[in-house]
Design a protein around this nucleic acid. Sequence first.
DNA 1: CGGAATTTGTTAGTGTACAAACGATGGTGC
DNA 2: GCACCATCGTTTGTACACTAACAAATTCCG
Lengths: 144, 144
Amino acid sequence: MTSETAPEDAAYRLDEQVGFILRRVQQRHLGIFAAAIADLTPTQFAALAKLCERGAASQNALGRATAMDAATIKGVVDRLRSRGLVTARPDPADQRRVILTATDAGRQAFARLAPRAHEITDETLAPLTIPERLMLLALLEKLT
Amino acid sequence: MTSETAPEDAAYRLDEQVGFILRRVQQRHLGIFAAAIADLTPTQFAALAKLCERGAASQNALGRATAMDAATIKGVVDRLRSRGLVTARPDPADQRRVILTATDAGRQAFARLAPRAHEITDETLAPLTIPERLMLLALLEKLT
DNA sequence: CGGAATTTGTTAGTGTACAAACGATGGTGC
DNA sequence: GCACCATCGTTTGTACACTAACAAATTCCG
């Protein structure tokens, strides 16, 4: 009905959409991550980091802490376990639950990689000044 | 070696890392997109949009225009073709190439969905004021 | 002209990510 | 006690996203 009014306001430019820009920024970040930490993916590292930070957690709880759903965290944890970075034992208080813990190897890997993770963050934000970085993080946080 | 100096500067807080925040923002955006446009994924819509915008393109060229590598764009185009939104014909000038074009159905789908895509962008940015949105987009653009 | 490098599209393999459905367990209210 | 409901972990299916390897076609360059 209003198609004749404002003929050009309907123009859709992909390159100006947040979603598309977000995807490209994400791609660049993932590239930086992969170049700096080749043997662990960002999600695997996130899960390991949270586990080291917390000490122990059930699988689903770890998923919630790292923003992964049950199906996703399962695969991530499986791969971490098969590498010997994480172990699982049944929760005596709840037979459904599995309690996950970082192994010594997992903790060592995290300690070794944590400084590099900081460098990854730095490199991702490198095109921005310090105030710009703070501004960006504050704005992104609101979109969570 | 330097582990005793500055004991707390090594603290790694996952929730403060750009990569993690970006991933969560992306998740929220994908959720908004899926709720508004159920029958097409963001990447499929992006490819269709670029094709409507350009008129025609080879498969790899479309991939470059939408920031997808050759392997990824193939799957996306295959799904668009199997839905009848896109057609392919050989390039007479270069036998390796396939020229892609949006079908009438594809153009209609794009015309129908483009307004919704604008709403998706709006909803994604809803927590921000107008000046904040411009600031965010400008900052993200620098991280491309 | 002819060999080398590049481009194009394809396939296989790995790793997220989400939805949907499932069985098993745990807690709650009646 | 028991039915009801939520939670936990799992599996299946679809869809990106990237790497690596490949064949065919094209282009570049000596």
